[in-house]
């Protein structure tokens, strides 16, 4: 009889693999629309990972706001500008020869320090932490974090006005 694998482990491995593959697809696809769809895949798998970490409201918001609203905005702009595939690149040796190896070194160093400095973090179990529902999040948001919340509303207002001013056609 095959032992039943732990679903927390299996779910993490499957979702992490899917997220990494979709992330590679984001940076390797030639067409912007394909990159956008791959980014939706990354966001969806991250939403399920949030769910496994006990952030249920955040998972819903991730799907609705990120994968819904923001990515639809991206796809609108891609369709509107009708950008085809990229021109074949002229070789950017600096980015490939210096950027990518130093990026890999950065990744190695940061993984090393995560494993060295945090050797016995608690193991993730679905359902072990259930404070991420709308009620506790809302309570904290409207008491302790009220000022950042209000500042955020101002920021969004400025962003709306700025986007309208920037994108409107010049009427001469």
């Amino acid at each position: 009889m095959i032992p039943m694998p732990n679903l927390d482990v299996l779910g993490f491995l499957v979702l992490a693999t899917f997220a990494v593959l979709c992330g590679l697809s984001v940076i390797l696809q030639k067409h912007a629309v394909a990159s956008a769809l791959s980014l939706v895949g990354v966001m969806g798998s991250l939403a399920v990972l949030y769910l496994m970490l006990g952030a249920e409201f955040l998972a819903a918001v991730q799907m609705i706001v990120y994968a819904g609203a923001i990515m639809v905005l991206f796809v609108f702009v891609i369709m509107l500008l009708n950008s085809g595939s990229e021109r074949p690149a002229k070789a950017r040796y600096f980015a490939y020869l210096v950027g990518i190896p130093s990026l890999l070194a950065f990744l190695g160093v940061i993984s090393f320090f995560i494993l060295k400095e945090l050797p016995n973090t608690s193991s993730v179990q679905f359902g072990a932490f259930t404070q991420g529902g709308p009620a506790p999040v809302g309570r904290l948001l409207f008491t302790q974090y009220l000022l950042p919340f209000e500042v955020t509303s101002l920021l969004v207002l400025i962003a709306i006005i700025g986007a309208m001013v920037l994108a409107k056609k010049e009427i001469d």
Partner: peptide, 13 residues
């Protein structure tokens, strides 16, 4: 497969 996923794996992801 390991028995549990530590939080540090999430950080590495």
């Amino acid at each position: 497969l390991p028995n549990a996923v530590p939080v540090s794996w999430y950080l590495i992801l």
